[in-house]
Design a binder for these strands. Structure first.
Lengths: 202, 202
DNA sequence: ATACAGTTTGAGTGATCACTCAAATTACAA
DNA sequence: TTGTAATTTGAGTGATCACTCAAACTGTAT
């Protein structure tokens, strides 16, 4: 009775996400989407209702994938502070094609849509808040495990980490001096590790 | 012989800058510009050649104004590190209508135009590099004056400051928790003042 | 007053925008 | 095989995009 959809919804959403991430909401036309999704306008609208809805779903997918990366940290027993620092160092390497070394799609969306679509702006805001909450959860766990000094405000430190992450991804996009970027990442890691319970006092 | 232009070029450019800053390049239509500049399309094109050129001039104006603010620091004899920190603390207050508490137009442009206009992207990149150079100049002067410890890499610290500034302006745009934002600003100031030559050792 | 050059005007350009829908196609049940 | 409902198709919708240009207007020189 129900015919299987001949398009792969997940694959289509992932392709849309990449396109939107790169070109932004306004900068992406339906022609662009038709090409990338290999779907005609009618199919796109049947499947995703509107360009804005499709963007919203793409943003959600992007967010969920980032959330998964953070959650997986908490499930392993690897040192948490080291793992957080590794994110920064990875951005510092600025490897070609590493998605973490491109500006965050949520941040891009927030900036782009702040006078275009209130819905997308709010969605971005919510995601950023959820992300910082997830970082805080990692830091709380690190405190439980005795990796992080007990007297630090994890909420505050989470915001600091998110700020560093965002700024570093931006710098990776701007900088043409690998040394500067790498050292910037190291400075941020050093700052983070000043709260490590394991570290020797200076 | 030459009739005085009945439009005020500087005022028009400033109005265009505000509009572009808020709505972005793609998000601003010529209709929007006509309204804000009180000019008909023909006049706009006679005066500014194209939408992209007008945007470019607006971005330049924005940049020059920011540059002036930094240069003026070097001409006064007020403590430089304190003055730099004051920028951060001002963002931390997130006062309604304070332009410093809105995301940087250059950063917005860089993110928005990276797949739209190579020219505007390059222009943004250049401005960000000039800004960080100007921050470095302030830090170098601070070293000369003995305000800043001698062994710190001012180029590196300048990049760190710029990253903090950018991230903080972004956070001011996202956050609905004044306390968090204020504390974030204070953390950044504290980090900066660890390089103060005047400060007492911990 | 008249001529004229500089400036503004705004309807109109073709292109592109997001989006629609009747018709063709397809997969499955009977 | 046939009937049917789900899906895809893609030409076409009106709206809006950045932009143009001939005509009207305006300030100045003569």
């Amino acid at each position: 009775m129900v015919r299987a959809a001949p398009y792969n919804r997940v694959a289509a959403l992932e392709a849309a996400t990449q396109l939107f991430w790169e070109k932004g909401y306004v900068g992406t036309s339906l022609k662009d989407l038709e090409n990338v999704l290999s779907m005609k306008p009618g199919s796109i609208y049947a499947a995703f209702k509107s360009k804005e809805d499709l963007f919203s779903m793409s943003l959600e997918l992007y967010f969920e994938q980032n959330l998964v990366a953070l959650r997986s940290l908490q499930e392993s027993d690897a040192p948490l502070l080291t793992a957080l620092g590794a994110f920064l160092l990875r951005i510092g390497e600025n490897a070609e094609g590493d998605p973490l070394c491109r500006p965050c799609m949520v941040v891009k969306t927030l900036l782009e849509t702040s006078s275009i679509s209130e819905d997308l702006t709010n969605q971005s805001r919510i995601y950023l808040n959820e992300m910082v909450g997830e970082i805080k959860a990692v830091l709380d766990l690190a405190q439980e495990r005795g990796e992080l000094v007990a007297d630090v405000n994890t909420s505050q430190l989470a915001h600091r980490f998110q700020a560093n992450l965002t700024a570093l991804r931006l710098e990776a996009h701007v900088s043409d001096q690998p040394d500067i970027l790498r050292q910037l990442a190291r400075d941020m890691v050093e700052e983070l590790e000043r709260y490590s319970a394991q570290k020797q006092t200076l």
